[in-house]
Nucleic acid binder design. Structure first.
Lengths: 203, 203
DNA sequence: ACCTGAACACCGTTCAAGT
DNA sequence: ACCTGAACACCGTTCAAGT
């Protein structure tokens, strides 16, 4: 058992988060528990409550790290693309790729529901919003003259759609399973949606 | 405590499912437990294991009932519409309406993940598939000449998209909260997607 | 035959007591 | 000051024992 002053609070926090990541990656949210994390880092459960308010806060921090990884992947996908449509396709493919490569980490972001009425903290919402902004940037030229709000709404619409396909595919609720087929669906959604924007139908 | 022969196995099953529905409606999947269900119906936990294999099987049956309710709602939405596009919009609105009216029941369908490698039983998948078929029927005239498989894939693409919007909205992960705004997004997705189909872009 | 009640191996969370 | 370890109120699941 680790004793006093072996590690600073910051170090324990880091050790706990990284142990949690390991456990989630292997067994998903179901396989995560305060006791298992504590055991993994050589402390007792009580210690976790000295550095985290509760298990939900710990999970939020793991999710924040996952969001950072995801954002990096999506950002990387936008560097070598030219037209808006192909950029959006590239972001979509990066999203599918991430979800299928890190299914448990990715799913936990959405499985972890905050207590009723509790809002996610500002820093967390920022991490989510900048993901939508990547899509907004690409939609801008396609929606020239439209308000910022309208563009943001369009990005949400499209991206929630892409997310829905991933979510049902990764949880085996669709009858497609490999990344290839999921990509066919997300490509199709993006292509049709973008074509629909081009057709400029009134909504 | 209920004693022998007070109820048949079928009656206990029905009582348990209906107690579970009540608990889920109020407190969501988190608030559901075998012990609470048993207490609600006046039996001990052990009895539940005489009529259900485990809690997962019980939850699957509650979900099956929710799927039946949902299917009825979607079906009802298709009776008084004329064009494919307006029919799909109507089904989408019925879906949003159901998800926002019965958030816990609706969410549990997707929160409940089967054990790894275990497939949902045939009767369950049928209930899911007939929902997609409602959309396929409406897409058919828009995709005249396309293969059944292609039409099925298009229905999945669109409906997963609609689902994604609902899912993120109902779990407060979007910054829209009332059914009105969700509907704006799903309407937009459907309208753009259908317009994209009409534009007949190659995918 | 039907159901109980206690047991087992787990949870998250708290906090008096030890070093 | 830092961390433990035991307690509390919960889980799902099993099964010998009671009626």
């Amino acid at each position: 058992m680790a004793r006093r002053s072996d590690h600073t609070k910051e170090q324990i926090k880091e050790m706990a988060l990284s142990a949690a990541e390991k456990l989630v990656t292997r067994d998903g949210l179901q396989g995560l528990s305060a006791r298992k994390i504590a055991h993994e880092i050589g402390y007792t459960v009580g210690t976790l409550y000295l550095v985290f308010e509760n298990i939900d806060e710990l999970i939020s921090h793991v999710n924040a790290r996952t969001l950072d990884m995801l954002y990096e992947s999506l950002l990387a996908a936008t560097v070598s693309c030219r037209q808006p449509r192909t950029c959006i396709l590239a972001i979509g493919r990066a999203y599918v790729e991430f979800a299928t490569r890190h299914p448990h980490r990715w799913k936990m972001i959405f499985e972890h529901n905050l207590a009723k009425g509790v809002e996610a903290p500002q820093w967390y919402r920022m991490k989510v919003n900048r993901m939508f902004e990547l899509v907004e940037q690409q939609l801008q030229p396609l929606l020239a003259g439209q308000s910022r709000k309208k563009i943001a709404q369009t990005a949400k619409t499209l991206w929630c759609g892409v997310h829905g396909i991933c979510a049902l595919a990764v949880t085996n609720k669709l009858e497609v399973d490999d990344a290839q087929s999921i990509q066919t669906l997300t490509d199709s959604l993006i292509n049709h949606f973008v074509a629909g924007i081009a057709a400029d139908i009134p909504v």
